[in-house]
């Protein structure tokens, strides 16, 4: 098995495309750091922030009282905002304190999507390319079962996604540290959940954020991998997966407004953040429901991929 993984890594890292992807990721982080640094130059912490927040809270309370009939989502959003702001007043925590390393890492975490994109590209190609190159014929006539080969390929996809995430985290920390420095005192992250506000250490929050965000990335890569193994077509796998990556959530939101079955759609469940901060997409969805759905999709994708790959006659 170790040999197979070595092979897959060799095939990924002997191609220039991989380094281009990594380069793009790193350059984007640096650019982002540069732009934020440039724009942040004249923003000074407001000394009268308490007063400012008090007005905001008062306004929000007023509008909350006025919108008895408004959608659940909007009310919840206001409630969350009010709770956090009141917490700030009580504990004397300025909202936009100094912008430092962790704030940047938090901002740069939006690039997880980019890391996801690159992982999808790798996942989509890893089986289909062997068919395109014709090398599948030499690969499958070795004393190694097809299931093992497929497993090695999937493991490689997952470790590639971890590599991209680690790269993103480490490099954005580095850029954040160089550009913005360490904070004088650690600002905690304020988490609102179930009507209560709690303080969390920034690093803990970021790791949680990364972990939960990479779930959708892993599910989409798994889907791309499945399409790649079943249809032997990397363009289809890349195209469909990226299309769903960018539109899946919106479509699901639209459907969720009308129909309750939206909760069975993959994209309604990939964002587990909704259970820790904020509220679920469809009333009545729980964390365990989503985890169960994710496992179900995961198993479905893999059964399809393994079943078809094992049975397939390699004729091309």
């Amino acid at each position: 098995m170790f040999n197979l993984l070595q092979n897959e890594w060799m095939k990924i890292f002997k191609r220039p495309g991989t380094f281009v992807m990594m380069g793009i990721l790193l350059v984007t982080i640096v650019l982002m750091g540069g732009i934020i640094k440039y724009e942040n130059q004249d923003v000074k912490a407001n000394p009268d922030w308490q007063q400012e927040i008090q007005t905001i809270v008062a306004e929000q309370k007023q509008s909350l009282a006025q919108m008895e009939n408004a959608a659940q989502g909007q009310r919840k959003y206001l409630e969350k905002s009010i709770a956090i702001n009141e917490y700030r007043l009580d504990h004397n925590l300025a909202p936009n304190g100094e912008y430092a390393i962790w704030s940047f890492v938090q901002d740069a975490s939006s690039l997880i999507q980019l890391a996801g994109l690159f992982t999808i590209i790798v996942a989509a190609g890893i089986v289909a390319s062997e068919f395109n190159w014709g090398t599948i014929k030499l690969l499958l006539i070795r004393p190694t079962s097809r299931a093992k080969i497929l497993l090695a390929k999937y493991t490689t996809v997952i470790s590639f996604s971890l590599l991209m995430l680690t790269l993103l985290f480490v490099f954005s920390s580095l850029v954040g540290w160089i550009a913005f420095g360490m904070p004088d005192k650690a600002t905690p992250y304020l988490n609102y959940f179930d009507g209560k506000v709690t303080e969390e250490s920034m690093i803990f929050h970021l790791i949680k954020f990364y972990g939960l965000n990479s779930i959708s990335m892993i599910m989409l890569s798994t889907m791309a991998f499945m399409i790649s193994a079943v249809f032997r077509n990397s363009s289809l796998a890349i195209g469909l997966s990226i299309f769903l990556m960018f539109t899946g959530a919106q479509f699901t939101n639209l459907i969720a407004m009308k129909f309750e079955w939206a909760k069975y759609i993959l994209f309604a469940n990939t964002d587990l953040m909704q259970y820790f901060e904020g509220m679920p997409l469809v009333e009545g969805m729980t964390l365990s429901f989503s985890v169960l759905m994710l496992v179900a999709y995961f198993v479905l994708f893999h059964s399809l991929a393994f079943f078809v790959f094992k049975k397939r006659d390699v004729a091309a």
Partner: peptide, 23 residues
């Protein structure tokens, strides 16, 4: 089987290492 299709982006030696690892 049909044409000997190899990984073109690898050297001949790397190709052989690749297949050697499979057996």
């Amino acid at each position: 089987v049909e044409n000997p299709e190899m990984y073109k982006f690898l050297t001949g030696y790397e190709n052989l290492i690749h297949f050697a690892r499979l057996s």
